[in-house]
Design a protein around this nucleic acid. Structure first.
Lengths: 376, 376
DNA sequence: AATTAGCACTTACGGTGTGTGAGTGCTAAT
DNA sequence: ATTAGCACTCACACACCGTAAGTGCTAATT
């Protein structure tokens, strides 16, 4: 039992640390590639692949048989026992086969998985087609993105609306709705359109409104909310100022994006997985995903991460308790320094990481280039 | 068994017809109020109320005991047997109490339920508050509506985006994004804002675009797509015409609203009901609600119904097979002749119809008045 | 004629028992 | 270091009750 403790003291401790889950950053603990022998890697890889496909514990016999290994089940058993001691796999009860642990999946994702074999060229083209087919607005793009991602990865998809870093006014329009009610339409430099109602103290006709918006457009063009705030300091208390104040609010909420809209799709996919044969778990997961509150911490974290690539958070690595039994695969999309959002997949830890990662990667690239075309 | 067959021959046939479900319109078959004796009504009412509360079959003893009826369980049993013969209730197996049938619920909704006791004044105020608290845009209003409806009625909520009948241009704006790319923002008379990208054959600067939009605004103000189509017939093949054509498309899709957006919320509520202890049913229902295709027929039907009130579709009355085990309660909202959408609740047939109906009613009224304020 | 007491009958439900098959871990042989 | 052999452990499916709940029917009562 203590044989290999001397060989990899770090690894042993690290695994315990992982389970203790301190406040680490997401997807960090890179496992050393050389902590396992080649044969152990091979067996771990097969175990994971088999388990991903069949959803049932993998026996020593199944491994040698299905993959025609030149060793006996007994040998495999010995290796598996070792892998279990190291924490890469477990078994649910004595007479059952092995199932991968979170740590096992992590090792797989980092060292064992052959990449990239996720999406075929054909699939990519199909997806691209759906996006370019119609000139949709942002809202519908994101909805579509969620839907396609979910379908492609056969799991639940999450897409966060792009959040701007530094929204600047491109154009503002005031439209009379009623005597004392006007509709303000704000277009920012990156092409986002927002509408807002403003109720006025006294009646104004369209002509007046047009004048004001023309004036504001020239005065405040390409300014962000901070600059506008400074600019209007000594303005008189007239309508122009009222509008400017609403404009500031508007740009500011755009930047902070408290109303960070999340688009979801494909809940059905994940619930049809065998791990969700238990109704209680279904309810819990559904609740988690529907409320979306699990993502309020994870998405901002992803947005501010300096590492640009795909992030994989496996089971217990999740900070959020409700996501403990699920894995999350995330990628950022957007235009550098201007706007950014997140595309993600949520599913059982037993998922095809390769395909999931490829999907999320591809969709995020696609969304990025679409966003790029939008901006001026 | 045939005793009452002579008394209510129509009712007997009608119930059979119901089960045969021909292509009837929604929520129609009004059951005659006098087909039951007063005591039978009382017993049916109690049975339904008890079942709605407890979710377990109601026994004859429970009825006399809980409601202190001056009759014996045996008498109640006789009456229940009669009610069962008439199709208002059933029992799952010999030694179980009674549960209401779809027909029973319908009778309850039409004659037995005391209305309106749905929402307290306090609840109404709370709801109203949430809507008026912030000046949201349409999108977020509807999302909020779905969320509040679901929470209030403790079931899944469905809200369809308002569909316009006859969208007319209020104002159009062209904003340069890139040299050959412009953003068109269209505001219609009823205050709907839509954005669309237009790619141009040759470069145009903002000044040119402003000119064109000003011209179009005066020429096409308050016209619908049909009128615009006639108007531009002999126009030269310039940019103004290109924009006008896109404008026509835009207004037209607004009217047909193929992209009839549906907002959903509260799936969790309905899945926590005891009728969804079976995982298969959960999946089926979830699939139905997530895909939303079940509503593609039911919502337009509701929109074009001449009956303005709340519609209740109970279990098997649903045309859509996937909704067979659920009830749907719908109300229309909007501004007469201008825009209309639907607010609805979906839940197990065992639901508090009174409260559900009141909720849907109230939210739809609220949305209507909000829409009213928006329009010019 | 309507109501009710009494009772036999039916059926779901929870607990217990069991035997079978899968798969392991260990030991001893290769 | 590998592997054959084997005892051992569990989950799972199935059958087997006993019990409690609630009915329908019959006969007695009002």
């Amino acid at each position: 039992m203590e044989i290999n403790a001397a060989n990899q003291p770090a690894s042993g401790k690290q695994s315990r640390k992982l389970k203790a889950r301190e406040g680490e950053r997401i997807a960090k603990e890179t496992l050393p590639a050389d902590s396992l022998t080649e044969r152990q890697k091979e067996i771990l890889k097969i175990t994971i692949q088999e388990f991903v496909n069949t959803a049932t514990p993998v026996s020593s016999e199944a491994i040698v048989h299905r993959y025609r290994l030149p060793i006996s089940p007994a040998t495999v058993r010995n290796e598996m026992a070792e892998l279990e001691r190291e924490g890469y796999i477990t078994h649910p009860h004595t007479s059952a086969g092995r199932i991968p642990s979170d740590k096992g999946y992590r090792y797989f994702v980092e060292h064992l998985m052959q990449r990239p074999t996720g999406l075929t060229r054909l699939e990519q083209n199909n997806i691209q087609h759906q996006f370019y087919q119609i000139q949709l607005d942002l809202n519908e793009w994101l909805r579509l993105a969620a839907s396609i991602t979910a379908r492609t990865a056969q799991n639940a998809a999450v897409v966060s609306a792009p959040r701007a870093y530094d929204s600047r006014l491109k154009r503002l329009e005031l439209i009379e709705v009623q005597e004392r009610l006007t509709l303000m339409v704000v277009v920012t430099q990156d092409g986002t359109v927002r509408e807002q109602m403003i109720s006025l103290d006294e009646p104004h006709n369209q002509e007046k409104l047009t004048n004001i918006s023309a004036r504001l457009n020239t005065l405040l063009h390409s300014q962000n909310w901070g600059q506008i705030e400074v600019r209007i300091k000594e303005w008189p208390e007239d309508l122009a100022r009222v509008v400017a104040i609403r404009l500031i609010e508007n740009l500011r909420t755009l930047d902070q994006h408290q109303n960070a809209q999340i688009y979801r799709d494909g809940l059905t996919n994940i619930l049809s997985q065998p791990e969700f044969s238990d109704i209680g778990r279904v309810r819990q997961v559904l609740h988690t995903l529907e409320s979306g509150q699990a993502f309020t911490s994870i998405i901002p974290e992803m947005l501010s991460a300096d590492n640009g690539g795909v992030q994989v958070i496996i089971g217990g690595e999740n900070r959020n308790d409700d996501l403990r039994l699920l894995s999350v695969v995330l990628a950022r999309y957007g235009v550098d320094g201007q706007v950014a959002g997140v595309v993600g997949i949520v599913g059982p830890t037993r998922m095809e990481y390769n395909r999931t990662i490829s999907t999320v990667e591809y969709i995020s690239e696609l969304l990025s280039s679409l966003m790029n075309e939008r901006r001026g």
